[in-house]
Each structure stands twice: as structure tokens, then as C-alpha cells.
Amino acid sequence: MKNKEINVLYTYLQSQQTAQQFLYDCYQNLDGVEASAKSYENCNSFMYYLDHGIQFYENGKNLDILFQPIMFFYGMIHLLKANLLTIRPDYPESTTILAHGVSSRKRKKKDYSFMDDEVKTQQNGLFPYFSKHLFSVSQAPFEKFKMEDLLGLIPEVSSLFTLQGQKEMITVGEVGMSELHFPNAILDNYHLTAKSFTQRINAYLPVIEQTEINKNSFCIKLSVPLHKPSGPFFTHASNNLIYFPFHRRKYLLNSEVMVHYLLLYNLSMLCRYESEWWGDLLSAKSEIDYPFITYFLQNTAEKIPLLLEEKLLERTSNHG
């Protein structure tokens, strides 16, 4: 992930000709789709999803933090819809998938803490739909997600937890390398042997050649370098280090995009419907929530457009 490269593909696709050709190439890989007709039919929607998504982000970054959760959430939704249109030519197939697919609980006015708050996933709506079609997650492993747990999964934000003595994510390697190093302490957290742990993460890795177990750590050697970490392996945007959840309870979601969506959904709801709490947070800055929320918003504004651009680039590699 390199920030300077962002918007290259987004910019390229800002014409009917390039958008239609891109969709045509994507649809050529799909069975039972009339690629020429469907790419022509969808190219304007595709182009506008991308354009509006980027504009939400760019304008959001220039606005006061008061409005940023809404701008970034809807920017993300537009970029997700553009991605979906490349593999689901009839999207949206029904009105049930137009809902957000997540709900937030009713808040108690007194002693409310964002870190302790939860969101609940639903069976229908955009969240389960894009999770299934973009990230092959048919069902989220849990129904409810705590905000502190979600924030701890984001490599850049996990460094804030480190400052208060919490170890949420650990670095296990670097993108493009063929070795992963884990501390033996992680085996205690997951209640697994090195062999069982390796079997659990095997599906997200190239062929494992061997596992070397040492006194304090173990090393997983891969047959080929790991260029596109997935599953529970998340990547830091600026240094390309690969992170892994240190605690079993944080082994939650198989895509960082899903994590950002849940956090932005809840923040956008707070921003819209809990004006007093949101206003107090931003003016008084009295709660620990404040640095975590502001740092997350800075991070998500840059990282999600990158991650979803990478997802689009996967389509280009699929058809050469």
C-alpha cells in the first residue's frame, strides 16, 4: 500500500469509455452475462459511484471532524457499490440489500462510552452482502461487535493501545517476504499448539514449507512471498508490515474493510443522532474515546480508498 498511488485507477475510470471497457473485461469472466450490453448499461452508475465516493472522502478531509464520520461512511458505501458492480452486474438485486445491514443499540445518556459500545450485524443489507461477495465471508463469526475490539484490529490504531499497555496486534512479517514470525505467547492466548495454530491460519497463506519452533518464538516459512495478506492478517498502510491479532477474542473478521464499515456506521449514527454527546466529546475532549476516534478517522480517510482501489485492481489482474 503506497499512498502516492491512490486515485490512479479511480482517475482512469472517470470516463464512459474507460469505465465501460473495465466493466466489459470484468463481465467477460462471469458466466451467463452479456458483457457488452451489461457494461454499457452499468458504466454510468459505476463511474458515479467512484466519483462520488472519492468526493465524499476528499471533501470530508477538508471539513471539521464534526461531519467527518458521515462523509467517510457514505464515501465508503459508494466505493463498495462500485466494487460490487464489477462482479454483480444486476446489483442491487432487491431492496433488502439497500439497508446498511447493521444496527446500533439505544444509548444510555449517562456514562456512555464509545469504546464499550456495540453494533449488531443483520442478515440483510449492505454489510452481509459485500462481506459475502467481496470477501467470501458468508456469515460474520459474531452477531455483536464491541468498538474497542474493532479499533484494536486496525494496525495503525493498535499503536494507541500499546501506549496504554495493551497488546492488541503484533507484527509478524512484511509484505513481499516469505517468513512469518510469531511469539510463543500467542499460542497460550489461542489455546493451541504451534501445529494447530498453523493449521488454523493455513487457508490464508501460500503453501507452508515448514514451521521452525524456537525457545521464545516460531517461524512459518512459505513457499512463495506473501504479497496480498488476507483473513486475519492486516497490513499497515505506511510501512507494509503484516499484523496479526494477539488475543483469540480479537480473531474477529476476515477483512479490515468490514472493521472500518462497522466503526464508521456507529460513528455516523452518533454524529447524526447523539448531538449532545458528540459535541461534548469534540469540545471537552475529556474521554479516552477522543484520541481513538480522531486517530481512526484520520486513518480510515486514507486507508479505505486504498484498500477498495486494490480490490478493483484485483479485477484487472484476473483478466490480464
Rank of each mutant, 00 (worst) to 15 (best):
G173N: 03
N254H: 11
A203F: 08
S196Y: 01
A194F: 06
F218S: 00
L205I: 07
R200F: 05
A237G: 14
Q210M: 13
N216I: 05
Q199N: 15
N214T: 07
I201P: 02
S238D: 15
A194Q: 08
H236E: 12
K221F: 14
E256T: 08
N254M: 04
G173F: 04
H191N: 15
K228A: 11
Q210P: 09
L253V: 13
G231P: 03
L180F: 10
L252F: 09
S230W: 01
L226E: 00
K215L: 06
T171W: 03
T193K: 05
K228R: 13
H247D: 08
I170T: 10
S217D: 15
S255R: 01
N239V: 05
H236K: 10
E168F: 08
H191R: 10
A237V: 14
H227P: 02
I186H: 06
V224D: 10
Q199P: 07
L192M: 15
F197W: 02
S223T: 13
L253F: 11
D188R: 13
E179D: 10
S217P: 04
A194E: 11
L226D: 01
H247F: 10
S230Y: 07
K250S: 10
M169G: 04
F234Q: 00
E179W: 04
A203T: 12
P245Y: 02
L192N: 02
V172M: 06
N214A: 12
I220A: 00
L205C: 11
M258G: 09
L192C: 06
L252S: 09
E256P: 06
S238E: 14
A203N: 10
I220K: 00
S255M: 04
P183H: 04
L192R: 06
N214R: 12
E179N: 11
E209S: 10
I213Q: 12
Y190R: 03
T193R: 06
R248E: 15
C219P: 04
L241S: 08
K195Y: 07
F246A: 13
E174C: 08
S223R: 12
S196W: 00
F244N: 00
N254G: 10
N240C: 14
I186F: 03
P225A: 05
V224H: 12
Q210I: 14
Y204A: 05
Y190M: 01
I213K: 08
A194N: 07
P245S: 05
A203S: 15
D188T: 15
G231N: 02
S238P: 04
P229K: 01
M258Y: 09
P229L: 00
L252T: 05
H247K: 13
H227V: 09
T193L: 05
S230A: 11
P206E: 08
A237F: 15
S178I: 07
D188V: 12
S178H: 13
F234L: 03
E179S: 10
A185V: 05
L187M: 13
